[in-house]
């Protein structure tokens, strides 16, 4: 039995030229992808070498590479973390709503509506953020400063345009909402029906069922999904470039004032078209830093998600 089923594959490679060419092309395409990815790293490094080896006063800002990139990295991380903190609870709640609360007939349609948020180009989010959201947030920021101004995050003076770090965090949160909620939804829909029905049969309310059966099962998937969202938020460019009124504020925790650190990606987009010479190399070096950060975050996220999928076969 086993010998007959394994025999045909053993005879298959009769080595027709067409087969060899086709298989070779397919394999070549796969290897090409690895080469491209390696190329991204190699070319970025080779173009940032001049900036890495330059003396401190040649770098824009005259403070050396570290003091140029440092505040940018801080701004990138800060905006992405705000986005993550806002988006994750919201996305999990939306995923729960679509999977367990919405009427069955509507659920697929509602999921599609949330996914539409992912289809909107990032530059359009920039337009929306600067013209619609930012002005509407100013009264709210004033209120925050008056009532919670003693917290360093909400220290004044409040920006009169609303183009602040907190606004960016909120816009980025909207932008990563679809990916986090899509992955959470996928994980929640994989929860074994036996677990949920057993919980309900024991008299649990719907929330207790979610707490006991869904959350423990889906936790690592949600973590992985939100880390993918974090990776997305770290690299987001145009929305930040348009909305954030960045300045050389250095490292500051004030989220609603008009002095904000810029993010790496937005800084590249803003400076690159007008840059020449070593300034270009400096920007590419900052891009390399962004590449490394997102690569680490994404690899960690994929590892978490894939580790979960190994376990999910057990249902």
């Amino acid at each position: 039995m086993t010998s007959t089923t394994s025999a045909p594959p053993a005879q298959q490679p009769k080595s027709r030229p067409g087969d060899r060419i086709f298989a070779g092309t397919a394999k070549g395409a796969g290897i090409l992808i690895l080469v491209i990815l390696a190329g991204v790293a190699v070319f970025l490094i080779s173009e940032s070498v001049p900036a890495l080896t330059a003396s401190a006063d040649e770098i824009p800002g005259d403070g050396g590479l570290a003091s140029y990139i440092g505040p940018l990295i801080f701004g990138t991380l800060l905006s992405a973390v705000i986005a993550l903190l806002v988006a994750t609870p919201l996305a999990v709640a939306i995923a729960l709503f679509i999977t367990f609360y919405a009427p069955r007939k509507l659920a697929a349609g509602l999921g599609y509506v949330v996914d539409l948020l992912a289809a909107i180009p990032s530059i359009v989010y920039g337009f929306w953020g600067i013209f619609w959201l930012a002005p509407r947030l100013v009264p709210f920021y004033r209120w925050l400063e008056e009532n919670l101004g003693f917290i360093p995050f909400f220290a004044g003076p409040v920006s009169s345009t609303g183009r602040t770090m907190l606004t960016i965090g909120l816009v980025l949160a909207v932008m990563i909402l679809p990916i986090v909620s899509a992955i959470s939804r996928e994980v929640f829909s994989q929860v074994p029906t036996l677990h949920t029905e057993a919980a309900l049969a024991l008299g649990a309310t719907r929330w207790e069922m979610i707490k006991m059966a869904v959350i423990p099962y889906g936790k690592s998937g949600v973590i992985g999904g939100s880390m993918l969202g974090l990776g997305r938020a770290l690299g987001e460019t145009m929305a930040v470039a348009i909305i954030l009124s960045g300045s050389a504020a250095g490292i500051t925790w004030a989220l609603i004032s008009s002095a904000n650190p810029q993010t790496i990606a937005a800084n590249i987009a803003l400076q690159f078209p007008e840059s020449t010479g070593l300034a270009v190399n400096t920007l590419i070096a900052s891009g390399l830093a962004l590449f490394v950060i997102t690569l680490l975050v994404n690899m960690l996220a994929r590892w978490v998600v894939n580790r979960r999928s190994d376990f999910s076969g057990a249902n």
Partner: peptide, 9 residues
């Protein structure tokens, strides 16, 4: 991993 490369990079 490539899916997560920032577009600016």
């Amino acid at each position: 991993v490539m899916t997560g490369i920032p577009s600016i990079v």
